[in-house]
C-alpha cells in the first residue's frame, strides 16, 4: 500500500516535470513566433513565382513528351523492321514478352494476396 502511494507520488512528480518541459517548449516557440520578423514580399513577387513555376512545368512537359515520342517511334520502327526483315525474331520476341507479362502479373498478384 505504502509502495503504491510512493509509486503514485513518483508518477505525479514525473508528470509535473513533463508538463513543465512542455510549457518551456511552448514558451520558447512563442518567443520565436513573436520575435523573429518575417518580411512578406509584395503580390507581384508571388505572381512572378507562379508564372515562373508554370513556365518550368510547361518546359518539363514538352521535354517529357518529346522523349516519350522519340522512344515510341524507336520501338515501333524496330518492331516493324523485325516483322518485315526477320519475322522469326519478331515472333520469338512476341512470345517472350507475353510469357514475361504473364509471369510478372502472377508474381505481383501472389504477393498482393499474401500481403493482405
Amino acid at each position: 500500500m505504502v509502495n503504491r502511494k510512493v509509486l503514485q507520488l513518483e508518477q505525479d512528480h514525473q508528470d509535473e516535470q513533463l508538463l513543465a518541459a512542455v510549457k518551456e517548449i511552448e514558451d520558447g516557440l512563442e518567443t520565436l513566433e513573436e520575435n523573429v520578423p518575417v518580411y512578406t514580399p509584395d503580390l507581384q513577387f508571388f505572381e512572378n513565382l507562379v508564372a515562373e513555376q508554370k513556365q518550368a512545368m510547361k518546359r518539363k512537359l514538352i521535354g517529357e513528351l518529346a522523349i516519350f515520342t522519340v522512344a515510341a517511334l524507336l520501338i515501333v520502327t524496330s518492331v516493324l523492321f523485325m516483322l518485315y526483315q526477320v519475322p522469326s525474331v519478331f515472333f520469338i520476341l512476341q512470345g517472350v514478352v507475353t510469357v514475361f507479362i504473364m509471369a510478372y502479373s502472377t508474381v505481383s498478384f501472389v504477393k498482393q494476396v499474401n500481403g493482405t
Binding site: L29, L32, E33, V36, V38, T40, P41, D42, L43, Q44, F46, E47, L49, V50, A51, K54
Partner: peptide, 21 residues
C-alpha cells in the same frame, strides 16, 4: 495566377514562421 499569388501572400508569414521553428 492572381488567386495563387493572393493565397501565397496570405499564408507566407505562417509558413515561414513554421519553418523557422
Amino acid at each position: 495566377q492572381l488567386a495563387f499569388a493572393m493565397l501565397f501572400k496570405n499564408n507566407y508569414p505562417f509558413l515561414v514562421k513554421y519553418l523557422i521553428k
